[in-house]
Design a protein around this nucleic acid. Structure first.
Lengths: 226, 226
DNA sequence: AATGTTATGACACTGGTATGACATGAGATC
DNA sequence: GATCTCATGTCATACCAGTGTCATAACATT
């Protein structure tokens, strides 16, 4: 799954260099979209959604600051300003507008690329990709496949949703009550001993990874690595 | 609640400038801890837990890279390298080691400060808030996880709820009676010596942070920072 | 030194949890 | 529609960790 990148830069040469670099270096990691002026960029920002934006500040039409503001009103996608304006005031204005980083021209493209990866890594932590992992267990929300040590396993519906809920709250102790509310949300007139039974069945499914589901006596259950 | 910042820098003057700036500018936003050499820094990283680290690379003793690696093995706290080494190779090595940003000396401290805030903002998104902290102990009400110096510890149900009650009344002296009413609310026909036993077991769990729970003879117990 | 208070370790027991067998009911198959 | 099959909920039982009690040691206060 490629990350969507938007580069806004009014110098066509630099734009070309950057987009080629991101396309080549990542070997398909990035889908690069570009704009050469502020208004185009604004239109793209409002229409599309991106995983990372690299914005020049001085642009024909709207400025980089305007684009950043527009983007922020919609999402919190990481934003890097790339510009020749190196006075403290400009830089601080950039951060106030809500950017994540500020790179001054001339710059090393490898350096910029490394920054992009670091930023993406941190931003991705907060959003939920479709693959949840914990130790030897991985669950794909899209395909609803669960794997242990990379091998797919058979899993029934209730066990699947219980595992999903546990994984979405990795390391957290979940009480039977909370689990019931989230996994049996519709009919709450079941005994909360059902959680025990389902945990048992889930552990059976997980085989050697069963130990990752810990019982926390008096409080509930939690899933963790190792 | 203040954010814990670690600055590692072998030039005492620069270290002083930076720590003063963070303390003044944030007006209490930061608790600044410092180290002037690699080995001190390594010790601090393994003992304490921080919300942000600013690391010089060239240091007497262990290098900034070493410190970064050590920190990463334990937490994913944001890390900024600050150094005069500006060759591409060094910068890329920094990012490979897992830093979040790389600032080249000489640098603007306001710029660095703005970066710190941006990074903190992003890092905080991914963690699950509402943490009660007191000295080396932290308790997350949502995940029911208790950490000492940033390391999770095993804790049983009664001990957990006792610790929670103490932390919610940090620095206050709590009598056995009050504690019983709040932690054993349902069955009050227990002897109030049970509080002593549970305090003992809680102290055992807390290990080196056990001393934070003080006995106040004739009155009860209280929790405080050192 | 005497007295009251707390720490500590051993022990017993209770209540929460694991587990397997069984009941139920919704779909699938004929 | 009858039958089969499987997923899911319930229950009884056994087990054991967590919790409460107590006796004794250590400590604080007078």
């Amino acid at each position: 799954m490629a990350y969507r990148l938007l580069i806004v830069e009014d110098s066509p040469e630099l734009l070309e260099i950057m987009s080629v670099f991101y396309r080549e270096e990542g070997a398909g990691l990035w889908t690069v979209d570009t704009a050469v002026n502020g208004n185009d960029a604004l239109a793209k920002v409002s229409d599309e959604s991106y995983d990372l934006m690299i914005l020049d500040i001085m642009l024909p039409g709207a400025s980089g600051f305007d684009i950043c503001k527009a983007a922020r009103s919609k999402s919190d996608c990481p934003i890097i300003f790339v510009t020749a304006l190196s006075t403290d005031n400009f830089i601080l204005k950039g951060y106030e507008t809500g950017c994540d980083d500020y790179v001054i021209k001339p710059f090393s493209i490898r350096h910029l690329y490394a920054k992009s990866l670091a930023l993406l890594k941190r931003a991705r932590k907060s959003d939920d990709g479709e693959e949840l992992r914990c130790g030897n267990i991985s669950l794909n929300k899209k395909t609803m496949m669960v794997k242990v040590k990379g091998r797919p396993i058979e899993i029934k519906s209730k066990e699947y949703f219980l595992l999903l809920y546990l994984l979405e709250n990795k390391d957290a102790v979940l009480t039977r009550k909370t689990i019931l509310e989230h996994v049996w949300c519709d009919d709450l007139d079941v005994s909360d001993r059902i959680v025990d039974s389902t945990i048992k069945r889930l552990r059976d499914c997980l085989g050697e990874a069963a130990g990752q589901i810990r019982t926390v006596i008096g409080r509930g259950y939690r899933i963790s690595e190792e």
